[in-house]
């Protein structure tokens, strides 16, 4: 049982990075394909499209910070807490990144034909980013309460 709690603790510590990276990879790939498609149709603003496509990569950065906040000597006593915070943070970050990628793809697709809506079209992606920030901040707060 003790070994299981330690294993869960390790899973929890690395989940924010692992799951965050999976989400970011999917999100950036989706938005990146939209950016490439938009480049075929437009004559300028390529850098802008690529910049927007990179937005979902922020979640893996939050994941790395949370991992460092959770990193400590893992014991049977703190394993469950590390697992719960880590796995839920990772899942939330992954989900945010995937959907943020779709929102960025839509923003790129819409603004290629109507450049004046570029800023506004990014609002949904920015709001989705807010949910990742909530997860990130409160994971850090709770991580400070775990003994170890």
């Amino acid at each position: 049982m003790n070994e299981l709690m330690v294993i869960l603790g390790w899973l929890g510590v690395f989940s924010p990075v692992g799951l965050g990276a999976i989400g970011s990879a999917i999100g950036v790939a989706v938005a990146g394909q939209a950016a490439i498609g938009a480049m075929l149709e437009t004559d300028s603003g390529y850098g802008r499209f690529v910049g927007v496509a990179a937005i979902p990569s922020s979640t893996v950065i939050y994941g790395i910070v949370v991992m460092f906040a959770l990193q400590r000597t893992i014991t049977p006593e703190n394993g469950a807490g590390l697992f719960a915070i880590g796995i839920l943070t990772g899942l939330a970050l992954a989900y945010v990144a995937v959907w943020q990628g779709k929102a960025c793809a839509s923003a790129i697709s819409a603004s290629k034909s109507k450049p004046e809506i570029f800023g506004l079209a990014l609002a949904p992606a920015a709001i989705v980013e807010g949910f990742a920030v909530f997860t990130f901040v409160f994971a850090l707060v709770l991580a400070g309460n775990i003994k170890g």
Binding site: Q33, A38, L40, K102, A105, S113
Partner: peptide, 27 residues
């Protein structure tokens, strides 16, 4: 890429069509 995002690149490469508003086809 499979699933609902299978044709992200293709759809992003197609210009919007505004039907009767446009005199000429955008593509």
């Amino acid at each position: 890429m499979s699933g609902p995002e299978r044709y992200v690149m293709l759809m992003a490469s197609l210009p919007a069509i505004r039907f009767l508003a446009d005199k000429a086809l955008p593509i």
